[in-house]
């Protein structure tokens, strides 16, 4: 008894010493810059001179002046970016989830070469996002791209398709690339969950002659639900802050601009730190809301694991 409490005391004493350096770095790199961004969002600071500015309260977010509305919440470009981000996140995450489960089920089937398949799944994940963006940009090139050459060769289209050329097709293309790159990640998570399932249930279901589709919906899906929830939240947060794929493939084109691209453009390209910070703060609040919901959902799961 006394030995155990001595151990606990020794641990607790050193605990804070061990945690502090990491916390200082996190405070410097995350907490302080975030606080400054929120502060800047209520100023008219510019990138040229970050030290002189006026405090203008919420004018960067919404303000009525001279009979007109200003601020990001009434800025059609910001609203378009919000819409783009939501569409991108909703469609890509749904597709990745459904395809990820299907791929995981295919790979989970006991066949020779399963290891090879898993290795192939890691390739899109291992390619840097900027590189994937460039490769797909080249493949989707309207004049010389291999995708158009294949589609025309097969007779699916008459002329070259302008995949990234400023129409709603650009968003479709970007979602397709994201699905290509991230479905394997979701599939790996689902696969890990599938491999923990007890074999006996499936044996019993097979003996009872229950249709595999029914087994999937009644047995497999409920059992892998926790893993699916985690995968969805992870992907959703990632999709909400999407920057590099869109920036590299279509630049600041209005059809595909996401909230992150909008914020960086205001901040760096237009040097408007106040407005850019307001846009960043808006995105931060949206993501913070999702994170809080996630942690609330995770808490009961963690408790189950601890017991």
């Amino acid at each position: 008894m006394s030995a155990r409490s001595a151990i606990d005391k020794a641990r607790a004493r050193s605990a804070w010493i061990f945690v502090t350096p990491m916390l200082i770095v996190l405070a410097l790199v995350a907490a302080w810059p975030l606080a400054r961004t929120i502060w800047f969002s209520m100023t008219n600071a510019t990138l040229v001179d970050l030290t002189t500015y006026d405090f203008i309260w919420f004018d960067n977010f919404i303000v009525h002046a001279e009979g007109r509305w200003y601020g990001i919440f009434t800025d059609p470009q910001w609203l378009r970016a919000l819409w783009n981000t939501l569409v991108f996140a909703a469609v890509s995450v749904s597709l990745e989830l459904v395809l990820g489960v299907i791929v995981a089920l295919i790979v989970n089937a006991a066949l020779p070469g399963r290891g090879l398949m898993r290795a192939a799944m890691l390739v899109p994940w291992a390619i840097p996002t900027v590189v994937s963006a460039k490769i797909w940009q080249w493949m989707l090139n309207d004049q010389f791209g291999v995708v158009n050459a294949m589609l025309q060769g097969a007779g699916f289209v008459d002329g070259p398709v302008a995949w990234l050329g400023g129409s709603s097709l650009a968003m479709v293309s970007i979602i397709m690339v994201d699905v290509w790159k991230t479905t394997p990640f979701v599939a790996l998570l689902v696969l890990a969950a599938l491999q923990t399932l007890p074999k006996e249930i499936y044996e019993a279901a097979r003996v009872d002659g229950i249709h595999p589709v029914k087994v999937f919906f009644k047995v497999t899906l409920p059992l892998i639900k926790p893993a699916l929830i985690v995968a969805v939240i992870f992907r959703l947060l990632d999709a909400m802050r999407m920057f590099d794929l869109v920036y590299v493939m279509t630049g600041s084109s209005e059809e595909t601009m996401t909230l992150s691209v909008f914020a960086r453009q205001a901040l760096v390209s237009f040097q408007d730190v106040g407005y850019g910070s307001a846009a960043s703060t808006g995105l931060f609040l949206i993501i913070a809301l999702i994170t809080v919901i996630y942690i609330m959902a995770l808490k009961p799961l963690g408790r189950e694991r601890a017991e």
């Binding site: 810059p33 400054r36 992150s260 914020a263 995105l283 913070a288 996630y294």
Partner: peptide, 26 residues
């Protein structure tokens, strides 16, 4: 301990662009 761990988890969900202007200053 718990609160700290969840705060750190929260940081990992940060959109990078949210700290961009603060980091620029530093």
């Amino acid at each position: 301990r718990r609160l700290l761990l969840y705060t750190i988890l929260g940081v990992s969900m940060f959109p990078q662009v949210a700290v961009l202007s603060g980091l620029f200053e530093i």
